[in-house]
Design a binder for these strands. Structure first.
Lengths: 292, 292
DNA sequence: TTATCATATAATCACCCCTTATATCTGTTA
DNA sequence: TAACAGATATAAGGGGTGATTATATGATAA
C-alpha cells in the first residue's frame, strides 16, 4: 500500500479533468503541486500513469487500470460519509430499548409514538425483560437504553429516575365501602386479590414489601397485563393491585376506586439506565430528552 | 469529502487493531499521533467514531458504519495496486500489433511464439492491414505497434527499421537454365509469372518498381499466401516473385532456385512503427527488444 | 498503595508540500 | 516568422501540519 492516500484523490481528480492544470483549479491548488504529486505517486507505484505532451496528458494503460479501482474506492468513501451523515441526522439507524416490564409499556407508548413520528428512519426495537435482564441487555450491547424499575445496583450502569409510580389497590362498586376511609393493609389482604403473574417486577416489589410487613398474599387471579387487572376489578372479581399513574383513566371515570391504605406501599421509581462507560447514541439521547 | 484521505487509512488500522497504541506501532508512529489523527477525523466528520476508556477503545455505531465503507475502499485500492503490479510484470495485459501484410507473418511468427511463451498472461492481438491502415490503427490507438513495409511518411509516427528484405524471382527445375547467369528482368517478365494478389503490399512495391523501369506484368497466377508462391514455383507452374529472406528454407533445400537479375529489385525494409508522442507500453517495449 | 496500561493534552520541531518563478515544448495566430 | 497561448516540468524557499517527546489522567490489577 502506498504511503499517502491523498495522492489517490489527486490522481482521481486529474483523471476526471484530463488535465493537471484543471485538476489544480478544482482542488484549489497550483499546477506544479499536481505535477509533483502525480510524479510522487508514479514513483511510489513504479509506473507511469500519464503520457505528458505539451498539449496535455493522456492516461497510460496502467493509469486506466488504476483509475477504475481508485474511482470505485473514492465512490465508496463518499457513500460512507453520506451514510454517516444520514445516521447523524437520525434519518437512519436504530434504537433498542429494554423495557422493564409490561407495565412500562403504558408509560412508554406515547413517547415511542412521538419519537417514531419525529424520526421515521430510526427502527425501534423493544426488548422485554426483568430489571436484571434489561441490565444485561445493556451491558452486552443488545440494548442502547433501558426503562425499568428502580432501584438498580450495577456499577457499570448509570441510572436516571424519570417517573414516580405508586402501587395501589383498587376495586369496583361491590367493595365501595373499603374506599370511604383509609384501611389497614392487613384487612385488604384477606379480600380476593387480583395481581400480575408472579414473575412480574411490580408484583415482586409489592409482594416483598408486604412480606417485610409480615403479610403474605395468595391472589385469586394472576393476570398477564395491567389492563386486565383493572377490568377484573371493575367487574367486582376482587381487589386489584395496580399502578396509580397508569390507572388514572379508570379512576377518573369512576369505574374503579382506590382503596387507600393506612400504610401505603412506598412509591417506586421508573428510571432510564444506560452504560456508564459509553456515551449514548444520538438516537438514544434524543429519546431520553423526549422523556424529560 | 474529507480533506485528508490518509486519516481513513489511520482509522482503518485503528479499527483492525482495536487500539490506538497498537495501530501506532503498526503504522510506525507514536500513540499521540493516532490520538490526534482520529480526533481530527472525528472533527471533520462531526461525529464520534470511538468510545475511549482507560481500558481501550470501542467503535461507536457511527464508527461501525464508516468502517464497513472504509474497509471496502481500502481493499479496492489494494487490489488496484496489485493489478497494476501484475500488469507491470507483464503477467497481464494485451499487446496489439498491426502487421504489414501477410508476408510479415513469416517473419513475425517465431517472435510472437517466443513472446507468448515468455509472457503467457499477455493477450496478443494481430491486426492485418496495409501500411496505411496500420498507420491509422496506431494513430487511433487500435494498435500499440506496427510491423510494416517501409517507407512510411507520417509525422506522428516514429519508425525503426528492423529487417532488410529482398524481392527475388525463383523457379523450379524446369527453368533451371535461367539460374546459371544473371538475366535481364525484361526477359523474366515474359515467362509465366506467379505473384501475390494485386492488393498485397509486396506485389505493389515490385510492380511499381518494374513500372518505373518500363515493364508491365500480367501474372498467370495470383495467390493469397507466400507459401503458395513457392509451392507453385516448385512444381514448375512459373516464375514466382518471393521474398528471399522468407524463402531460405526452400532455397537451401534446392527445391526452388533464385533467378538473379542484372538489375535486382532494390531491397526493402520492414520497420517497427509506433506513436511519436506517446511512449510504448511495457509489453510493446519488450516485444521490440525481442525483435532486435 | 503502587505499577501498569490505555488514551489525552501540551509544546516543540522538522519535514513535507505547496507556492512562486521560470523553463520548455507545441500549436495557433497575426 | 515571430509572438502568443496553453500545457507541463523544474528549482527554490517558506509556512504549516503532523509527528515526537513529555506529561497528565483514569482504571485496573497486584
Amino acid at each position: 500500500m502506498i504511503t499517502k492516500l491523498d495522492l489517490y484523490r489527486m490522481f482521481h481528480t486529474v483523471c476526471k479533468n484530463e488535465s493537471f492544470s484543471k485538476a489544480a483549479k478544482s482542488l484549489y491548488m497550483t499546477q506544479p503541486a499536481i505535477s509533483q504529486g502525480i510524479a510522487q505517486l508514479e514513483k511510489e507505484l513504479e509506473t507511469t500513469l500519464f503520457y505528458r505532451t505539451p498539449r496535455g496528458i493522456t492516461l497510460t494503460k496502467e493509469g486506466q487500470i488504476l483509475y477504475d479501482y481508485v474511482h470505485s474506492a473514492i465512490g465508496i468513501l463518499e457513500v460512507g460519509e453520506e451514510k454517516l451523515l444520514e445516521f447523524q441526522n437520525l434519518t437512519t439507524g436504530e434504537l433498542r430499548i429494554g423495557v422493564g416490564d409490561t407495565i412500562s409499556r403504558y408509560y412508554l407508548l406515547p413517547y415511542l409514538e412521538a419519537f417514531y413520528k419525529r424520526y421515521p428512519g430510526i427502527k425501534l426495537k423493544i426488548l422485554n425483560g426483568t430489571t436484571l435482564e434489561i441490565a444485561n441487555f445493556i451491558k452486552s450491547g443488545e440494548a442502547d437504553l433501558g426503562i425499568c424499575n428502580l432501584p438498580i445496583q450495577d456499577d457499570h450502569l448509570q441510572v436516571e429516575p424519570c417517573k414516580d409510580v405508586h402501587d395501589i389497590f383498587v376495586c369496583g362498586d361491590k367493595y365501595a365501602n373499603l374506599t370511604k376511609d383509609k384501611v389497614e393493609a392487613k384487612f385488604v389482604m384477606k379480600m380476593p386479590l387480583i395481581f400480575l403473574e408472579k414473575k412480574a417486577n411490580s408484583r415482586q416489589y409489592v409482594e416483598q414489601y408486604l412480606r417485610e410487613q409480615g403479610m403474605h398474599i395468595s391472589p385469586e387471579f394472576e393476570l398477564g397485563s395491567h389492563d386486565l387487572l383493572l377490568e377484573f376489578a371493575k367487574i367486582n372479581l376482587g381487589i386489584a393491585c395496580v399502578i396509580k399513574e397508569f390507572s388514572m383513566d379508570y379512576l377518573e371515570r369512576g369505574v374503579v376506586r382506590e382503596i387507600e391504605l393506612i400504610e401505603p406501599i412506598p412509591k417506586r421509581q421508573i428510571g432510564i439506565c444506560s452504560l456508564k462507560s459509553v456515551p449514548m447514541s444520538r438516537a438514544a439521547k434524543r429519546f431520553v430528552e423526549l422523556l424529560r
